[in-house]
Design a protein around this nucleic acid. Structure first.
Lengths: 109, 109
DNA sequence: CACCAATAGGTTGGCAGGCAATATATACCC
DNA sequence: GGGTATATATTGCCTGCCAACCTATTGGTG
């Protein structure tokens, strides 16, 4: 997978892996990697600023969690985030339909 | 469709609409728009530099065509371009599979 | 005839946004 | 003590598409 591949679709990915329950940053990276079968390897420089932005937009909330001396920032979806995720999914369908139609005309896939 | 949507997939789109025969720039724009059902409206500032780049890479050749006083630059796929198109299609499948798996887990679509 | 929309080709500057690089710290195993 | 995995975070860069702009021909409408 070429670098920069998730450009424009990152928010949806982050919201999607948080749908089933709160996760911290590092777990989000591994979740995206596992779900994509290893194809998508997000970097910290990619997700931390993005998570911050999504929180500022009200789509996420975060809170510190302590495991002994260890600290994690745990992110969870807000209701607004859930609505936004639905929108991202709809946009994804339209996007793949549009590009797919040009790239593989007559495949109606 | 949000602006910037084709980011990273433009080359494939251009190669795809040229697959069935040579076209000039303006026709490429309308071809992409029609095939996508009006979803993708490319700008001249998007395609002309891209076509130039693809020609430099050897994936296209171009030639001037005159209709009376009217001039058109006609682009056609090279064999290398055809091979590249096959690659773009393969990458597109992998890309949609990866993002789709994260966005809609368990849908195996 | 004047005017406008459609057709046709092109350039330039800007900027969003993901990435590489870098930094820090704890936990665990050998 | 050293290496790897876990965990968070910032900075600057670069890619690449877009908006805005420009020129010119053609054809239709009032």
């Amino acid at each position: 997978m070429k670098a920069d591949a998730v450009r424009g679709h990152l928010d949806g990915l982050l919201l999607a892996v948080l749908e089933t329950g709160p996760l911290h940053g590092y777990a989000i990276i591994t979740a995206v990697m596992n779900r994509s079968g290893g194809a998508l390897e997000l970097r910290t420089g990619t997700i931390y600023p993005a998570l911050k932005r999504l929180e500022r937009l009200g789509l996420l909330t975060s809170s510190w969690e302590s495991i002994g001396e260890r600290r994690r920032r745990c992110y969870r979806l807000t209701d607004e985030g859930r609505r936004s995720l639905a929108g991202e999914r709809a946009e994804w369908r339209q996007f793949t339909a549009a590009i797919g139609a040009v790239l593989n005309p007559g495949s109606n896939a």
